[in-house]
């Protein structure tokens, strides 16, 4: 399991922040959510997910809280911080610019 490339890593951060923008979730739920929303196209590997979560937490974009999961077990729930919300907006904007640009090139050919 190699390290995700920069593009993928940045994208994964965006996906995680986006997923957490509606409600607090634990790691498993984040992976599931991304999988569902993307129509099973994006499969987040645990090997990328947890390092990414911990990195985002270290950077203060998200914060973690232990709570009870739907099955009644203790789980670590992540939620966005105010800074994380601002970061999400920034990353969304930059993603839109980037994907728009790539689209332009792809469609022109």
């Amino acid at each position: 399991m190699g390290k995700p490339s920069d593009l993928v890593q940045g994208t994964l951060d965006l996906l995680i922040l986006k997923t957490l923008s509606t409600e607090a979730r634990h790691g498993w739920a984040i992976a599931k959510r991304i999988q569902q929303i993307s129509g099973e196209v994006l499969q987040v590997q645990q090997g990328s997910l947890y390092p990414a979560l911990h990195r985002l937490e270290q950077q203060g974009w998200i914060k973690a809280k232990w709570g009870e999961s739907e099955t009644g077990r203790q789980a670590k729930f992540y939620s966005l911080t105010a800074a994380g919300r601002a970061q999400l907006e920034k990353e969304t904007a930059s993603w839109e610019r980037l994907s728009g640009a790539i689209n332009l090139i792809v469609q022109e050919g």
Partner: peptide
């Protein structure tokens, strides 16, 4: 599917300050 838990743990820890 989960892979090597020890390696995964180390990778997560690498992000810690």
């Amino acid at each position: 599917e989960f892979g090597n838990p020890a390696a995964l743990r180390d990778q997560a820890r690498e992000t810690w300050s």
